[in-house]
């Protein structure tokens, strides 16, 4: 099976590999696995004032899984948490031109994003309101 140029690019030059401090209040961590292929993916976001200022990932798996998470971190930076929540696996799959048998890799990335956001919101229960607060005038 041939990988697309974009997958190969992300595979050879993965963006944002690494870790953020998972104990930080500003950091949300998502860790997901795929039992069928044995892949494990960790994706972290750093959120300041409702905006994702940094994103890191670490993936042990096939080229498509690495590329999906690498692309996800690129997309996450600069987005608000709510915008990040809108990223769908289909966006990732079409950007990387993943073949049908590799779609599940993009699903894994979407689930990792969702978990990271959930973890962040869990640590910051009031974050949902604080993002909107600038609009509220006293």
């Amino acid at each position: 099976m041939a990988y697309s140029d974009k997958v190969i690019d992300h595979y050879n030059n993965p963006r944002n590999v690494g870790s953020l401090n998972k104990d930080s209040e500003e950091v949300g961590t998502g860790i997901v696995g795929a039992p069928e292929c044995g892949d494990v993916m960790k994706l972290q976001i750093q959120v300041q004032d409702g905006v994702i200022t940094d994103a890191k990932f670490k993936t042990f798996g096939c080229g498509s899984a690495i590329a999906s998470s690498s692309l996800a971190t690129e997309w996450l930076k600069g987005k608000t948490v709510d915008q990040a929540d809108q990223i769908r696996n289909t966006d990732i799959a079409s950007e990387l031109a993943l073949p049908p048998v590799k779609i599940h890799c993009s699903v894994l990335a979407e689930d990792a994003i969702k978990q990271a956001i959930a973890d962040f919101k869990n640590k910051n229960p009031s974050s949902a309101e604080s993002v909107e607060s600038p609009a509220t005038r006293s």
């Binding site: 997901v32 696995g33 795929a34 039992p35 069928e36 599940h104 699903v107 689930d111």
Partner: peptide
Amino acid sequence: RKSETTDMSS
């Protein structure tokens, strides 16, 4: 059945 995508068991 084993999930073909994300692991919800571990």
